[in-house]
Design a protein around this nucleic acid. Structure first.
Lengths: 342, 342
DNA sequence: ATGTTTTATGTAATCGATTACACGAAAGTA
DNA sequence: TACTTTCGTGTAATCGATTACATAAAACAT
């Protein structure tokens, strides 16, 4: 029972052709009103459901879009995806999720799989930059699949992106630490092939220079985004001849690790040492010693990415408009760095 | 340039038919070895990519599975999805994400959309129980789309589920609080139409009874899963003639709110008051006053759901096997409830 | 040399919907 | 009345791949 009902079944029952049924269901103006109503009523009675796969094959549009992220179980990426899904839902698009687990090989596979699955667009946060995987990106562009980068982007002509001003984020956080009286500010950075880390780093540097502080190579540590990495980094920093009195970390997790390690060593925060992170992960707010962090408005980033995609889809395929949306970062000042007014 | 290459293009170039090309590419044993090699080489040279939509239409299988969750930006659901994606990736399935935002109407829409999109299976955590949306579920079953519930499930004959033993989780947490010397233990519960909350509640009750403590209706508060709801609930509890000395909360967020409110009132934790939550959200571990919580092993739950799905897909369609997987909850004892050994 | 089996490939239907084109009937015009 | 539009519907191709069935050629048997 309940075999799939097709327009042919409806046609047969009404002694008309499938073409007429199709036209009636699509509100084609050439159909007699009586016929239309009859078809629609019969379709409902027979519990007809349009076969989207047939439609997709015919039209070449699957109504699916693909999202590629390093991993989904981080608040930042999950929130971006939430934003994308919410914005696309009213337009009838479904969202396919892919994770790279920070593997470029996996990223290539995902790109190919999505293109093969005929998605109508791809939104992604790049896992890493490497020449090897250019062919996967080229494939996407050659197939004319709209591609949009969010947060971690890559420089490709004609490709739109939605990012935040990471330079400004780094600058704001560092400036804030300086304002709180810190003079030897360390920085946790990440993979320098990624713009986000490079720009936060540059913002940090510029803030130092603008405020008469010298940049000290030794104060920059390249860490992974994890609690343990933050602990190890603090360990290294404290072995320096002149240990720093503050850290601006590109990762909230590393910032948390740093704080845990500093406490372990009875260095009191924020009086002796200030810490600021990046991403505004929920836990930064929840801690008793809440952590200062730069917010990236992930929900807005997701929504905006979806909107950029929708614009591109509507446009005639011949015209390619590269749109670079840069959101403003917002510094959330919390206890981990507030000496003055607290 | 780079128009899509089809098997017809390959066939034309080689002066053979598309059928032969198809067979060669699918390693059909009836094809001459020389032909196979030639076809495969030519296909690669022409950068041929199989059109999955055509395949999906022909076979009736889209190689997509749908996942419906209340929201994606909670660590629990994101982790489950991660588990599902990881388990399904090697099998070539793509994961489509849908959010209900706790709306039953949205849940119905999602169910219908996924069925219409011909997904090969649906995994979901139920948003709420209501008679209205039975038709959406019936539709899924009638169309023979494998359905699997995880965490929040519904009783439907023939439908498999992967849950944790919530009764035991509630029991363990409550028993632990009792062991720590608490005698007036309150409970934050949730929507009673959902088994997870009902069972945690029952586990809580049973633990009280088994340990000679009486159940007090006034100590049970039905809250939403949010920080503010937790604060409000504490506010109510402290107005009772005999306020409680502990809370077992079905939500980590409400537990956090409770802790914040208790601190606000200078009630010290854990010496005067103990708190335990549920879900083991990352922040519970990160807090200086880390929060005791029941872990639901979301990653494992996702993987297991995917495995149950794969089993069902392989089986002949005629046989329906209902599989109920119940994972064991694990109590993570942390500072918010540790009086004894700390 | 003739008949039988095997091998490799072609022919055409199929999945379900859309749509350019064709065509008969009805309506409008002169 | 005869001729042109307009209207509503049917015919058949199309999207791209798979596959049951048919068939020609080769291999084998007697």
């Amino acid at each position: 029972m309940s075999e799939k009902v097709t327009i042919y079944d409806i046609a047969e029952k009404l002694n008309i052709t499938a073409a007429t049924v199709s036209r009636a269901l699509n509100n084609n103006p050439k159909i007699k009103e009586a016929t239309r109503e009859l078809v629609i009523k019969t379709a409902a009675a027979m519990n007809y459901k349009q076969n989207k796969l047939a439609l997709a094959l015919k039209s070449g549009r699957s109504n699916n879009i693909g999202v590629i992220v390093p991993r989904i179980d981080s608040n930042f990426f999950a929130s971006v995806i939430r934003g994308i899904e919410e914005e696309l839902y009213p337009h009838g698009y479904q969202v396919i999720i892919c994770q790279t687990h920070e593997s470029i090989k996996r990223e290539n596979e995902n790109l190919h799989t999505l293109v093969d699955a005929q998605v109508d667009g791809i939104m992604m946060s790049v896992t890493g930059i490497s020449d090897e995987n250019d062919s996967a990106f080229r494939n996407v562009l050659e197939k004319n699949v709209p591609l949009i980068f969010f947060d971690r982007s890559k420089h490709i002509d004609g490709v739109s992106s939605v990012t935040i001003n990471d330079f400004k984020g780094g600058y704001l956080a560092t400036k804030h630490l300086i304002d709180e009286g810190c003079r030897n500010i360390a920085h946790f950075s990440g993979d320098q092939s990624l713009d986000i880390f490079k720009n936060r780093f540059l913002g940090y540097k510029q803030a130092l220079l603008d405020n008469g502080l010298s940049f000290n190579e030794e104060y920059v540590i390249f860490t992974k985004s994890s609690v343990d990495a933050g602990k190890d980094a603090v360990d290294k920093l404290l072995q320096l001849q002149t240990p720093p009195d503050a850290i601006f970390s590109s990762s909230d997790f590393a910032a948390l690790g740093a704080i845990q390690e500093l406490k372990e060593r009875n260095i009191s925060i924020p009086s002796e040492f200030c810490v600021a992170g990046f991403s505004n992960e929920p836990f930064t707010k929840f801690m008793e010693l809440s952590i200062t962090s730069v917010d990236q408005s992930p929900l807005e980033m997701g929504r905006m990415s979806a909107r950029v995609f929708l614009e591109q889809v509507d446009k005639t395929d011949t015209i390619k408009i590269e749109k670079k949306v840069v959101l403003a970062p917002e510094l959330h000042i919390r206890k981990s760095s507030t000496r003055t007014n607290f």
